[in-house]
């Protein structure tokens, strides 16, 4: 799980071009939107694309996406839940 979260942080930084941000600057449970990283609606679409391209997971329901993209922790838990046991 820790390795997944670190990888996810690196992918988020690259996908969203978060200059001057390092993986250790992102708190696992900090909100990604509004506060925390201060991401916006276009970033949420970029993160959906990230999930699809990097993990082969397509989020069909936008309401579900809101919960999944709440933090790095929730994203990592979602990815893990979709991976084969």
């Amino acid at each position: 799980m820790e390795a997944l979260k670190l990888k996810l942080k690196e992918q988020i930084i690259e996908a969203l071009n978060l200059q001057d941000t390092k993986p250790e600057d992102i708190d696992d449970n900090a909100p990604l939107f509004g506060e925390g990283l201060g991401l916006d609606s276009i970033d949420s679409l970029e993160l959906m694309v990230l999930l699809e391209r990097q993990y082969g997971i397509k989020v069909e329901d936008p309401r579900e996406g809101r919960k999944i993209l709440a933090s790095v922790q929730s994203m990592a838990e979602f990815i893990q839940s979709k991976q084969p046991a």
Partner: peptide, 13 residues
């Protein structure tokens, strides 16, 4: 590359 799926919104916009 992605067969018309999973396209980033930013370059399109």
């Amino acid at each position: 590359a992605y067969k018309e799926s999973a396209l980033n919104p930013t370059p399109f916009i």
